[in-house]
Design a protein around this nucleic acid. Structure first.
Length: 274
DNA sequence: GAACAGGCAACTC
DNA sequence: GAGTTGCCTGTT
């Protein structure tokens, strides 16, 4: 049994674990029977629990508070930046409903791969495919006496054939995954370079990848590159925008944190909010 | 059993 | 350049 210390992450006002992990941005955090969430990040397992108005984390990684603060983007005051969203009454309802969500700074390769898989798929199935990918090809390790798997490297996936991805049952997305892995492994795509690029340039580069269209590129920019103006529009967002925003609405009008506004709108709409 | 799903690409006009 | 269709698979 490991004896890793519990880190204080944030107050419950700053971070709501349920909203953060259930708002559709990530696929490797799962709710346990005790209400806590267990996930795998950068080859380490972590468990997040909320107790008495505070959120704590325990992990198999060396306890580096800074690493987790960055992962959960805790150095940005979401309450404050959200006050800049001038979108009227509806936008306010979305902000109120979603406050507590943290936009996770996910690993770029994992995000790219996961959002390629996400196309035309629902969350339970995406999770299942990603989990199978990890258990087949990711490095195993132990935490709390259980076996977890790191997300497999691009190099590892690049060496595979579409036939070897058959157990994932991800259909026509398999060649997309391998082609993206090869682009990364061969250095044709460099995440550090994409991070430095302007938003529009990064989107243009990402879209050169097979199977990466506007939606996946925006997800990758927002969740994988932490470009906060990323504004993925799926069918839920399309509906919400159509019903509550002017026809000529431009996400840029929400400012540099438009991606956070998108997350609030998406989560509210998907939870049945009108 | 057909239609559809949190998209993309290739094709049409 | 706007609209249509096939794509794997699982679910309804």
């Amino acid at each position: 049994m490991e004896n890793k210390e519990k880190l204080f992450l944030a107050s419950s006002a700053e971070m709501d674990a349920v909203k953060t992990f259930e708002c559709g941005q990530c696929f490797r955090w799962n709710r346990g029977s005790d209400g806590g969430y267990t996930g795998v990040v950068c080859g380490a397992a972590a468990k997040v629990t909320a107790v008495d108005g505070a959120v704590y984390l325990r992990s198999s990684a060396p306890d580096k508070t800074e690493f987790w603060r960055e992962y959960f983007d805790l150095d940005v005051d979401y309450q404050k930046v959200s006050s800049e969203f001038f979108g009227g009454e509806y936008m306010q309802r979305c902000v109120d409903f979603g406050m507590g969500i943290r936009l996770l700074r996910q690993e770029p390769w994992e995000a790219l791969c996961s959002f390629i898989i996400s196309q035309c798929n629902n969350i339970p199935r995406i999770k299942k495919i990603v989990e199978t990918l990890c258990s087949c090809f990711g490095e195993p390790f132990e935490f709390d006496g259980e076996v977890y798997h790191a997300f497999p490297s691009a190099e590892r996936i690049a060496a595979l054939s579409t036939e070897e991805l058959a157990p994932l049952r991800c259909g026509y997305r398999a060649p997309y995954i391998i082609s993206a892995a090869r682009a990364v492994a061969e250095g044709r795509v460099e995440f550090s370079a994409l991070e430095r690029m302007s938003f529009d340039e990064a989107i243009a580069q990402l879209r050169k990848l097979d199977g990466v269209g506007p939606k996946v590129a925006n997800c990758m920019a927002l969740y994988g590159l932490h470009k906060m103006s990323g504004f993925p529009i799926d069918t839920w967002m399309k509906r919400a925008l159509k019903e509550h925003f002017p026809p000529d609405f431009d996400p840029k009008s929400l400012g540099e944190y438009a991606g956070l506004a998108q997350q609030y709108i998406f989560y509210y709409a998907r939870s049945g909010g009108k």
